[in-house]
Design a protein around this nucleic acid. Sequence first.
DNA 1: GTCTAATACATTGGTTTCTTATGTATTTTA
DNA 2: TAAAATACATAAGAAACCAATGTATTAGAC
Lengths: 109, 109
Amino acid sequence: MQSELLKGTLQTIVLKLLSENGKMYGYEMTKKVKELTKGQFELTEGALYPTLHKLEAQGNLTAETVQIGKRLRKYYRLTESGEKETAAKISELEAFILGLQQIIQPKIA
Amino acid sequence: MQSELLKGTLQTIVLKLLSENGKMYGYEMTKKVKELTKGQFELTEGALYPTLHKLEAQGNLTAETVQIGKRLRKYYRLTESGEKETAAKISELEAFILGLQQIIQPKIA
DNA sequence: GTCTAATACATTGGTTTCTTATGTATTTTA
DNA sequence: TAAAATACATAAGAAACCAATGTATTAGAC
């Protein structure tokens, strides 16, 4: 994701996207992230697809393949445990950001 | 740093600590980070020392060894290019956090 | 009409970064 | 006097991502 900072945030991002949008397919996620961050984040496919497969294997997502013309599109959505995982990961990320801010903005903290 | 989220932020944290405190030694940094984050972040030595050596090799830090009793203490401080690097990395981190927030708080964005 | 860009999936090899474990030695505190 | 804290360090391994590559379809530009 060309930032070196993203390590560990990708799963959280994917989960959050699905919790906001109900169901999405991989390519759509790459466009959505780019749009939301005005081009700042580029979610690469080499990172995304393995992450989706892992989240699915963990039971956090289910996949449904739809045929569009002759092309396949794989829609993902959260399972129940995926919804819990999303909430947990978002909390963790928010706490992490607060922790970071205590270090990088010591005057405000 | 027991969070999986820290990947890529460690250098930035070290640089920022030094820019705030002038000079510090490794062990001191681990205590400082723990104190600033009220125990939330534990900067492990296995991550810290290689990072310090790397920053030094890159010319961002200089080291000065001081003998305290029979024990050695290695003080680090920023070089001029280290100061520039600090500013750059802090900007990058802040932009990154803003980007993240656009994804995880889409209502506010 | 044809060529390029966009859509849509996927894997592989390599690098970077961190964690865990381990090691050495001194000093303070209980 | 024994344990905890101080203070440095390295090594092996895992996890996560990037870049490159691959296949195939579809839309749009010229």
